[in-house]
Structure formats: C-alpha cells, structure tokens
Design a protein around this nucleic acid. Structure first.
Length: 686
DNA sequence: TAATGGGGGTTTTTT
DNA sequence: ACCCCCATTA
C-alpha cells in the first residue's frame, strides 16, 4: 500500500513508521539517513499529518530543501499529494527562530523591524564598543580584536559558562583581561538592545525565551505535531533547550545523527546531546542503522581503522552493503605542495577519462585556503570547479551597504547600519559619523523604543554635522528611508536603491560594476513582507559557494567540487581527493591544545574519508616551502598526519611519485610559466 | 578630519 | 596573504 517501505531495510522501516514517543536514529555515515528522514516525513504526510504541523530542522537550508524534494518524489509514487511537502516547516534552527520571532516580536518586547546581525556585523558592533572603551589605543598592550571578542562572547552564551573561564580556555594570554572583556560583552548586549539588533545567538536565546514563556510557549509548542531534527550530534545546549520547550506536552520528536561525525564543537555543539538523548527526552526509542550503502568495503576499512583509534572508539563499525569488493584507497606521496597539485589534477583527469564526470568528484580540504594553489593549477588547465566554504564577503561590501539602508528604513535605531551608511558619504569618516549618530539621539543605551519617526525627525540636526558637499546625496537618502503611505516593500526598496546607487558608485573604484548587484536585492525585496527580512535572509543564508556568487562555471558544463570537509558533511561523490594529510593541516594545529580538539580533528578526517563512494585518494606532500612565492627553495619537512598510523596506513596502497612525474612536476613550474605566457600573448592575436 | 601607504602581527571549521 | 594599526599628507 505504501510502496516506499519496500526499498528500505528493516531498521530504516522501523524508524519510518515509529509511532509514539521520542525517537533517536543513530545513523552511521552512508547508512541512509536522508532516505530515512525523507521517508518518515512522507509517511507522516501520507497518514494524515498536515504539512504545516511538521517541523523539520536541518543543518543548512539546502539540506532541508533536498530532503523535502525527496519526500515529494516519494509521495508522487503514491496517491498522496506531493506538493504538500513544500508546506512542511523546514530550515535551520536560526532560520526558523527568525520566522518565529518576526511573528511574535511585539509579545517578546522586540521592535517589529528588528535587524539581524550576521557574524561580521556582530563583530563590528563589538568593535564600536571596544573602540569607545579605548582598548584599541591603551599603552600598546595586546588586546583581543573584534573577531576574537565575538567568539569569546558567543561561546560564553552558547555554553552558559562565565567569560573568565572561556577566556582561560580559548585565549589564555588574555587571562588578566577577563574583566575589561566582560565589560565589552556587557556593552555589546546593551548596544544591541538599544538598537533592536539581534545576533545569531540572540535568535536562539529569544526563541528559547518565547518557547518557555507562560503565555506564548504553549502556542508555539502546539503548532507542531511532529518535530524532526537532522545532524543532532551538532546541536548545542541552547538548541536542546529550545526543543524541550517546544515538546513540553507532546512527545513526538525524531532526531537523527552520528556521534562519530560531530565536528562543530567550536560552535558549542556537544555530541553528548545525542548520546544522552533519553535523559532530555525520557522513554526515547532508539534505532541503529548500520548497513552502509554508500562506499565500498576497502574505503570503510580505512574509516573503521581510523575510528578504532579514537579515544573512546567509535561505536559503529561500518559494513558495506555492496559487498567486500572495490579498489583500495590510495595514499599519494608528493614531493611538495606544487607536486600535490599536479598529481591531484592528473588523477582528476585520469578518472574523468575513465568516465567519472567532474561532478562526481570532489577535492576536500581542512581549511578553505588549503586549496588556493590547486585552484591556480585548475584554472591553468581549464578545469572548471565550484568551491564551497571559506567564502569572504568583502567583495560584497556594496551589497551590505544597501542592506544597511534597508535596515535603517525599517529600524531607525540600528546604529550599526547608520554608521556604515554614513561613512559611505564623501568626506565622512568615523568621527563625523559618530557626531551625526549623536545628533540622531542614537548614542545612549536608552534609545530602545524610540519610534522610527522620532529618530528621523532629528535628521536635519544630524545633516548639519555632515560636510556640505555630501548633503544633497544624504538628503535624498534620508527621504528614501521614510516609508510612504500604502507603498509596497518592493517600491520602497527601489527608492532606496536609487538613492544609494550614486553613493555606492562614488565609494568604490569599480562602483559602476557593483550597481547590478543592487538590483538583485530589490527583486529579493518583492518576495518578503518587510525590508529588514531581506537583510535577515541574506545574513541567515549567505552565498555558500563561489557559484552562488557568480553563477555556475557554465550551466550545462561539467565541473569539479572543491569543499572544506565541514561544508561537505552529508554529501557524497564517486571519487574523493583529500589534500594535505600532514600534521598541522589534518589535524589543524589550531586545535591541538586540548585532547578533545584532537579527537574532533580525527572525526573531521573521518567525515572526509566517508564521503567517497568508489575511489578515495589521500595526498601527502613531503615538504612545504617557507616562502611559497619567494624565489629561494627554503623549506621544511612535513610530518605525515598523526592519524596515518601503521594500522590506518595498512588499509591504503601507497603511490610514490615516479621519476618522470617528478621531472614533469619540476619542469612544470617553468613549463607552466611558458604556457601561461603564451596564453597571455594569445589574446593579442585576435 | 579623511584618505592613503607602510609595517607588523596573525593565520580553522559555520549558523 | 591579509587585516589592522599607525603615521603622514592633503
């Protein structure tokens, strides 16, 4: 009757049809986690649960989309209505928190147009507080910078530990500064409240507060019949609190995860939450998925060997459902980083010749910059790729400029957005911007509930602080900020764009080229109900890949994926190349100060290995140049990753650089240079 | 006071 | 290689 179940194994089927209290699915890598969760949602829908009453929390919005897409496909094969999948409430904790807060802002004492700060914004607000406290300039003593301060603050909030402990943990060199750091945190919170600014942590804190609230809480909890959570090994205490509050009277919650893949402790995630699920949700039933449908057994042997050496050993040993056959993973020894790039490219092309398209291959790295050299090599060889993770947004500064204008229009108390917009004006720097903010009455902590109109009524005073030259542009902008009776969001956005366009164009050397992007924001504004939502959506779902920013290399062409291991979580490819299996890279030397840090690095490696379906190649450069761009040959010898123990190595076939490849690599530098020169000249001939 | 250029310190992973 | 700070100049 429900033929979806036919294709599931017994354990998966048990999880899908489970009816009753809390359910925990422990699903090792490649054991059909997504399949099971999608099928469970389909099952619930087919058995009469209204889609709006299902909450599906995933790690990225992309994961939610993917899962609901599969749910729809499953439903299409039965008589059930496939479109209903689209109405399931899905997204990340933060995105769902945001939607909830928008709906209930007044009840929570929040301004309706509250602004969402992305991490860079949050750091900038902290920097304002830091500067005003004078720490930037006092006596040359090293003081934590904005990014570190933001990190310290966030950890304290997410773990509920005092700031002094967090400092001792993360930045022991600043131990004696715990007190001024605490003051900055206090100032940061005050500044946010005053400006109706909400950072990512606040989204969760406020959602928790709402869900625990006597009056609001029952309504929020009662809105869902079923709550399903993916990647549960990566939730933190705050998120568990939210779930408990949402399931105060109703015990129907399903969580799926794998403690062997917990890699987000820097975000205060703790795998103990999945291990101790039954403590938070008494009476929980557990289903364990062990059959691996993704990889060949030789690849799983490597992963199992690595897992067996973990401090506490991984609970599940992975077994390939496909049987024991398959090609053994390769450990590719390379002379240095340059030769690693050459080898990787040749392996990629060799697999492509064997019929494995570029889209079925991925290069994984621990840190985004580890692929920089490879990207040059790929570009030189005309191999198209899309990179996930580690994106820098500075190029998108103009986008944030217009978003700041949107934010001010909806929330005139948004000091940070004002500060940003004002400084774009010609002849306005931090000092004049601050004066203008003071004139607007935005400097104190007691500005909390000033009406937008009240703030804007002071605009003429603020304008008087600005240099005469920029007053026309500033005046036009202030006009555009004021909403008009009966005006739609899109129309208002368009007026703001028109006012900002000349300002943005002036502010950047390549200003004209940036104007196109601003129009995209106006289009986005047509789809939401208020201007600050555009900015919030951008903060919560920023471009995740180079293709999100620039469009895929070419729509119907084939391209390779480059990704950080973190961004590759939950994905799989036929062929996986892992670069830089050296100590200091994997494991990252940033994580070695604590034993748990090292264990997490092991899991990162494990996640990387288990992404591969058919072929796995791990690259091991033997030496690194001290000055990669210098002309000398100064270098140090690399230590193979400490995770490549005898036992792990025994599962690999070693591939050593053959002499001619070595020569090719050596000649490669000069040869490539010549090739590139020819290319450069080539443009002259047409 | 804003804009600009040189020097020194830092360098992970992401909602 | 990049960001941040600081000194110099307009």
């Amino acid at each position: 009757m429900f033929d979806v179940l036919e294709e599931l194994n017994e354990a998966q089927r048990e999880a899908v049809i489970h009816d009753g209290g809390p359910l925990r699915v422990l699903a090792g890598a490649g054991t059909g986690k997504t399949t099971t969760l999608s099928a469970r949602v389909a099952w619930l829908l087919a058995h009469g649960t209204a889609p709006e009453r299902i909450l599906l929390l995933t790690f990225t919005r992309r994961a939610a989309r993917q899962m609901l897409h599969r749910t729809a496909a499953l439903l299409a094969r039965t008589d059930a209505e496939a479109q209903s999948a689209a109405r399931v409430v899905g997204g990340t904790f933060h995105a769902v928190a945001h939607r909830t807060l928008r709906r209930h802002a007044p009840a929570l004492g929040l301004a309706e147009g509250f602004s969402v700060l992305d991490p860079a914004d949050a750091a900038d607000v902290i920097d304002m507080v830091r500067e005003e406290a004078g720490h930037a300039t006092t006596t040359g003593r090293r003081f934590p910078r904005k990014a570190l301060l933001a990190d310290l603050y966030s950890r304290a909030v997410n773990t509920g530990r005092p700031i002094s402990e967090v400092v001792a943990d993360v930045a022991p060199w600043a131990n004696d500064l715990a007190e001024p750091i605490g003051d900055i945190c206090r100032g940061y919170v005050a500044r946010k409240r005053a400006g109706s600014l909400v950072d990512f942590d606040d989204l969760l804190l406020l959602w928790r507060a709402a869900a625990a609230d006597e009056r609001l809480g029952p309504r929020l909890a009662g809105a869902y019949d079923h709550v399903l959570v993916d990647e549960y090994q990566d939730v933190n205490g705050l998120q568990v609190d939210v779930l408990r509050a949402l399931r105060r009277d109703d015990r129907r919650i399903t969580v799926v995860g794998d403690d062997a893949q917990a890699v987000y402790s820097f975000r205060a995630a703790e795998p103990r939450h999945i291990l101790d699920f039954h403590l938070a949700f008494p009476g929980a039933h557990t289903v364990v998925l062990t059959a691996n449908y993704r990889s060949t057994q030789p690849i799983l042997d490597t992963a199992n060997a690595l897992g067996s050496e973990a401090d506490e050993g991984f609970s599940a040993v992975l077994r390939a459902a496909k049987g024991a056959s398959g090609e053994r993973p390769k450990l590719v020894h390379c002379a240095d980083e340059d030769s690693q790039c050459v080898h990787a490219c040749e392996q990629i092309l060799a697999h492509r010749e064997e019929g494995i398209a570029l889209r079925d291959q991925a290069v994984l790295v621990r840190a985004a910059r580890h692929s920089n050299l490879l990207e040059l090599e790929l570009a030189a060889r005309r191999i198209p790729y899309v990179k996930y993770g580690g994106l820098r947004f500075t190029e998108a500064a103009h986008v944030k400029d217009l978003l700041a204008a949107f934010r001010v229009a909806d929330n005139a108390a948004d000091v940070l957005a004002w500060f940003r917009v004002l400084q774009l004006l010609d002849g306005v720097g931090p000092v004049i911007a601050r004066r203008a903010l003071a004139a607007l009455g935005l400097t104190g902590v007691d500005i909390a509930h000033a009406e937008n109109g009240e703030t804007m009524s002071r605009w003429p005073v603020a304008a008087a602080e600005l240099p005469a030259a920029c007053r026309p542009a500033a005046g036009a902008l202030a006009d555009a900020m004021a909403g008009r009776e009966g005006e739609g969001v899109a129309a208002h956005a368009e007026r703001l764009r028109a006012a900002m366009a000349p300002i943005v164009q002036r502010a950047y050397p390549d200003g004209a080229a940036r104007l196109v992007d601003l129009e995209a924001l106006v289009v986005a504004a047509a789809k939401v109900s208020r201007l600050s939502d555009v900015a919030a959506d951008f903060a919560l779902e920023p471009p995740r890949s180079t293709s999100d920013l620039a469009g895929p290399p070419s729509i119907d062409e084939d391209w390779l994926t480059i990704s950080t291991v973190h961004s590759a979580k939950g994905l799989e490819w036929d062929v996986v190349h892992i670069l830089h299996a050296t100590d200091g890279m994997i494991p990252s030397d940033m994580s070695l100060s604590t034993p748990s840090g090292l264990e997490e690095e092991r899991r990162v490696f494990y996640v990387g290995l288990t992404r591969a379906r058919r072929s796995l190649l791990v690259y091991l450069p033997l030496r690194y140049h001290h000055r990669p761009h210098g002309r000398d040959d100064a270098h140090g010898w690399a230590q193979p990753s400490r995770f490549l123990t005898e036992k792990v190595r025994a599962t690999f076939d070693d591939v050593h650089e053959s002499f001619d490849i070595l020569e090719a690599a050596g000649a490669g530098a000069a040869g490539d240079g010549l090739a590139r020169l020819s290319e450069t000249l080539e443009s002259l001939w047409s």
